[in-house]
Amino acid sequence: MAQTVKIKVTVNGKQYEREVEPRLLLSDFIRHDLGLTGTHVGCEHGLCGACTVLMDGEAVRSCTIFAVQADGHEIQTVESLGTPDNLHPIQQAFIEKHALQCGFCTPGFLMTLVDYLGDNPNPTEEEIREAIDGNFCRCTGYFNIIEAVKLAAQKMASH
């Protein structure tokens, strides 16, 4: 029988206790064990950024962290941001600037940006590009995402 480890993780403010195999990736844990499927998986080797979540407030890639390592930590996923009727300003900005097409990479961008704009409320365009450089998008060419980040920064400043 494979070893399992008991973990306690807080995800989007809710505490979960689960028995997991040590090799279970945090991305699979969030998606398949907890059913929070807003986080997506695009490469499983830490390059594409689709699986980005916040761990204790910092953007990390959930495909290169084991679920056991989340024990005692706080995770935030896209489900913690807004709802269709009450969108987070970054989500609102993405919609207004047509910064998503297929939407698969978008949750990763959002979580990266929640962390980034929290620390850097007034970034230059060059800084924005660097901030999202670890998130791949195949649909938008990033142009509208960059515009959306500028708009989101404005929206968050006036909040």
């Binding site: 998606r31 398949h32 059913g35 929070l36 499927t37 807003g38 986080t39 997506h40 998986v41 996923t77 896209v78 489900e79 941001l81 807004g82 709802t83 269709p84 009727d85 969108l87 989500q91 993405f94 919609i95 207004e96 047509h98 998503l100 939407g103 698969f104 978008t106 949750p107 959002l110």
Partner: peptide
């Protein structure tokens, strides 16, 4: 603006691997 976006951007949609 796209009608599909509010659901898409909040994770309220179903991609293939989301199906159990």
């Amino acid at each position: 603006l796209r009608l599909e976006d509010p659901e898409l951007i909040t994770g309220n949609v179903q991609f293939l691997d989301d199906i159990e």
